[in-house]
Write a protein that binds this DNA or RNA. Structure first.
Lengths: 359, 359
DNA sequence: ACGAGGTGAGAAACCGGTATCTCGATGCGG
DNA sequence: CCGCATCGAGATACCGGTTTCTCACCTCGT
């Protein structure tokens, strides 16, 4: 079934076929036109075709027209692979995220995808869910297939990132900041977010808080937890219970019994999914929110507005992060400095899931 | 600041530098080792290095070891670009979706990403949100940068897809079926899903249904609507009101007043996001669900389980679709036939948002 | 021992563009 | 009217691999 090489079996008039060209493979996609064919058809050199295709101004308009016509006729598309090789760049950027299921990364993905698309760049997406160690390996590999990287790597250790920093460059780091790394980072001021949540809750008379902790090793979780602990120290009468939980709906849902058991009047959840899960769990236990227990989330995913009751949460500019990540990366790729790190200041959105402490 | 070309300014012993090599550019990533350098270091030919790197068995083990050592020492990584060109394949597959914000596509993305990752393939993600016309253009472009395509293109006209079918191949079509296209498709039996919903509702005594329609031109919406209309014809006493709506939370939320106004006792929403939005909207209007109005969704996104009340919805195997899409595409790329189209039969999940018709 | 058959590795021809170099044809100043 | 700078386009040397072709060297058979 395989098509034969094409030439007749015997070269009838070839001069005994001396060396004869060697390599003859490369399943080119069904006789796609190459630059040589176009050059031949237009009666010019390959160089000229290249110049025309790249809009070089030093070509005779008449010639250019002829070339374009030929290209059109053969519906020629320059081979991306060949350009990559010759130019030394891939035309793509890569996004590495730990978990595509997380709405947080989805909106970054979205913002980035659109920005990259507008700039005519491909977007490579890599999920590093498995192994914290894997994160860095995958990032390196992704980097090799792209011109730049947007890296959301919550679990890779700081030193690891510092060590590989220049092999990953240019890249921008998302949702975390690593000291001594020259790559710019875009992150969230988690402490400020937690601060706003806590003062909102204490203002309503809550004293006993439960924190539904995110995944171990998540940088974001670590910061939020640390902020909470610091506040627990600083504020007299503030009592904090930390409950291991996770980052998904189910985790929050499953944690509901432990929440009521620990007797807290307010629950600070690692993120909105957990918060939403615990909301449902509490409802099933017939605990009234916010009557008996207040609940807060983090991130303000699109869904947060539609829980029952609507979730009080910390809003962070997710798609802005995607867009900014692109801007930064683009700058870096064009040799501009990365600029300063930025920490976005989150905003507390007070909705229906929080209220005065009971009693 | 740019590093000098490297050679001493004057070639002291070069023979007056005759022609001198021409092309000298290509910002190779900071002196990355090339196959030539490795060959030189190991004292073998480039061909041999290539053979070793690709695990050809016809190499003297001792030589192979020497090559591997040299490669290790220079930490050599074969250039992806060069391989792409020589091999004629990109090593990547592309996913084209209309809307990355839709959880439906997110889980496909996820399944595909993981499958592709395991196979050592890159995944290109393209969002075609803008223009229905754009969908096809973007798909073509994505295809040029990959070896295969997974295409979720709800709005592109059938003929357009048929016309471009072979320029897109190999590809698999998602969530829709196009007659006369040789690409395999993985889709959902929308009519069956709607059938299940309707018989569930009519079984509970509902007679007046409202359909919150999805985006115009969406193939999925068209099928669901058609199924609904057919049933309205077939079942005596069945009254159907079609309300233009959309596909997002906000759309459903905004539609709530129109729902109560039209007097239906049950709402069939285009998808879970719309359903969830209308749930919230109805709550705000103090309409009890399912006491006064029943609501159903479609898709069973992760969130559906956590609405209040939990959403009765049509469950479709989203990540299975991602995985299957990969399997099919992989098969196609290896020259196997695409196999048959498959229509997944959805399952109705009865949760809390539906109940007996009032009165 | 000598020719046939095998093997392993180097040489070289690609893959399909891009960019430098070179050279013939103009344009222009002196 | 001639020489020099300019300009446009062809020739060609890459980019960094892969693979076919070729050939030297070994082994084996008789």
């Amino acid at each position: 079934m395989r098509a034969s090489t094409g030439d007749g079996e015997q070269d009838l008039e070839a001069p005994a076929s001396p060396p004869r060209p060697a390599g003859r493979r490369g399943p080119r996609p069904a006789g796609q036109a190459t630059i040589s064919r176009v050059a031949e058809a237009a009666g010019v050199s390959r160089a000229t075709v290249s110049r025309v295709m790249n809009g070089s101004p030093t070509v005779n308009p008449e010639l250019a027209a002829r070339v374009r016509a030929a290209a059109e006729a053969l519906d020629y598309e320059p081979s991306a692979a060949a350009r990559r090789l010759a130019l030394g760049r891939t035309g793509a950027v890569a996004l590495v995220v730990p978990d595509l299921a997380n709405p947080l990364f989805q909106s970054v993905l979205r913002g980035l995808s659109q920005a990259a698309g507008r700039a005519g760049r491909q977007l490579l997406v890599v999920e590093s869910d498995e192994d914290p160690e894997e994160e860095v390996i995958l990032a390196l590999e992704a980097r090799r297939n792209s011109d730049g990287l947007v890296l959301a790597s919550p679990r890779a250790p700081d030193e690891r990132l510092r060590a590989l920093g220049d092999r990953l460059a240019p890249f921008v780091l998302l949702y975390r900041e690593v000291a001594g790394l020259e790559a710019p980072s875009l992150s969230i001021d988690n402490a400020a977010g937690i601060g706003a949540v806590v003062s909102h809750l204490t203002g309503h008379g809550h004293r006993r808080l439960a924190y539904l902790a995110g995944p171990d090793g998540s940088a974001g979780n670590a910061e939020r937890l640390a902020a909470l602990r610091a506040l627990a120290q600083a504020v007299p009468g503030f009592e904090l219970t930390v409950l291991a939980c996770g980052s998904m709906f189910e985790h929050g849902h499953a944690a509901a019994p432990r929440v009521v058991e620990c007797g807290a009047s307010a629950v600070v959840a690692f993120n909105d999914m957990v918060a939403s899960g615990v909301l449902t769990g509490l409802r099933e236990l017939e605990v009234r929110v916010p009557g008996e227990v207040s609940v807060t989330g983090f991130d303000d995913i699109p869904f947060a507005r539609y829980t029952t009751p609507p979730l009080t949460t910390v809003s962070i500019p997710q798609s802005e992060l995607g867009r900014q990540a692109w801007e930064r990366l683009w700058g870096l790729m064009n040799g501009e400095g990365g600029g300063y790190n930025v920490r976005y200041q989150p905003r507390l959105l007070i909705r229906g899931s929080t209220g005065p402490a009971p009693g």
